[in-house]
Simulated scan of single mutants.
Amino acid sequence: MPKPFSPAFPIRTARLILRPFTHDDLEELHVIRSLPEVARYVPWEPGDLEKTAKALEARIGQTTLTEENQPLTVAVEVAETGELIGDAMLFWVSEQHRCGEVGYVFHPAHHGRGYATETVMALLELGFDGLGLRRIIGRLDTRNEASARVLERVGMRREAHLVENELFKGEWTDEFVYAILRREWECR
């Protein structure tokens, strides 16, 4: 596995630019992270500008993977307008098992346009072709039907339904685990 791994930014897809976060992203990121519907299925709550600034500062430094248990985070913007619409990550879960995980959040005004699918496709390519992973997973709250559809669209299969496995925001919740292997990715 290449170490350290840092993609050649920006990453361009058909309609998007995936790039490192900068301090200039604070206002737009805050708009996204302050919405209750964005935070519904993620392990953080909507917060004030100071909380967003702390989250942004962490993301600014997450552009290179040097060891397992690290995320590589990207700002997702619409190429045509330059508008920041999402926040995505490729997490390096295990070097030994060559496993990663994808995650993402998008502003609700941009749901239903295929942007999350396009972003996850780019993250899978980074994981398999760039980092040399063998398996990439996605985990989500079972109530998050839109996110499940995204993972299914990119070719991931549902491998597990974990029942009341996590105390999440004060309630016991179920979780789906999706996965795709490199050989499945290459055959798509």
Results as ranks from 00 to 15, higher is better:
residue 157 R to H: 11
residue 38 V to C: 07
residue 57 E to Y: 08
residue 167 L to I: 09
residue 2 P to T: 13
residue 99 C to W: 05
residue 16 L to A: 06
residue 44 W to Q: 06
residue 79 A to S: 11
residue 28 E to N: 09
residue 151 L to W: 04
residue 171 E to Q: 14
residue 83 E to Q: 15
residue 76 V to G: 02
residue 68 E to W: 05
residue 58 A to V: 14
residue 160 A to N: 07
residue 93 V to S: 05
residue 106 F to R: 01
residue 24 D to V: 11
residue 123 L to G: 00
residue 25 D to F: 03
residue 24 D to G: 15
residue 85 I to M: 05
residue 48 D to N: 15
residue 13 T to A: 10
residue 180 I to G: 00
residue 78 V to R: 09
residue 4 P to T: 04
residue 153 R to S: 14
residue 109 A to M: 07
residue 18 L to Q: 01
residue 86 G to H: 05
residue 182 R to V: 08
residue 87 D to S: 14
residue 81 T to G: 10
residue 27 E to L: 09
residue 171 E to P: 05
residue 186 E to F: 08
residue 19 R to D: 00
residue 73 T to P: 01
residue 23 H to M: 11
residue 93 V to P: 02
residue 165 N to W: 07
residue 55 A to Q: 14
residue 35 L to R: 08
residue 105 V to M: 06
residue 113 R to D: 11
residue 169 K to W: 11
residue 32 I to L: 13
residue 180 I to H: 01
residue 108 P to V: 13
residue 186 E to V: 15
residue 93 V to Y: 02
residue 137 I to W: 04
residue 103 G to Y: 00
residue 119 T to D: 10
residue 130 G to C: 00
residue 93 V to L: 06
residue 124 L to R: 01
residue 184 E to I: 08
residue 78 V to E: 09
residue 109 A to Q: 13
residue 78 V to H: 05
residue 104 Y to V: 00
residue 41 Y to W: 13
residue 94 S to V: 03
residue 16 L to E: 03
residue 91 F to N: 02
residue 47 G to T: 08
residue 34 S to G: 13
residue 58 A to S: 10
residue 185 W to E: 03
residue 92 W to I: 06
residue 26 L to G: 07
residue 118 E to D: 11
residue 55 A to W: 03
residue 22 T to A: 13
residue 110 H to Q: 11
residue 155 G to P: 07
residue 88 A to K: 02
residue 78 V to W: 05
residue 132 G to M: 00
residue 123 L to R: 01
residue 84 L to K: 02
residue 90 L to P: 00
residue 121 M to S: 06
residue 74 V to P: 03
residue 36 P to H: 08
residue 32 I to F: 06
residue 148 A to H: 14
residue 153 R to F: 08
residue 23 H to A: 13
residue 4 P to Q: 06
residue 94 S to I: 00
residue 144 N to K: 08
residue 99 C to T: 15
residue 32 I to Q: 05
residue 49 L to T: 02
residue 23 H to R: 15
residue 165 N to M: 07
residue 78 V to M: 03
residue 104 Y to P: 00
residue 101 E to M: 01
residue 166 E to F: 10
residue 113 R to A: 15
residue 23 H to G: 12
residue 103 G to K: 01
residue 35 L to A: 07
residue 52 T to W: 04
residue 128 F to K: 01
residue 157 R to F: 05
residue 34 S to A: 15
residue 1 M to S: 13
residue 93 V to R: 06
residue 70 Q to F: 02
residue 41 Y to Q: 01
residue 179 A to W: 03
residue 51 K to P: 01
residue 144 N to S: 13
residue 173 T to M: 08
residue 158 R to T: 10
residue 72 L to D: 04
residue 171 E to F: 08
residue 69 N to M: 15
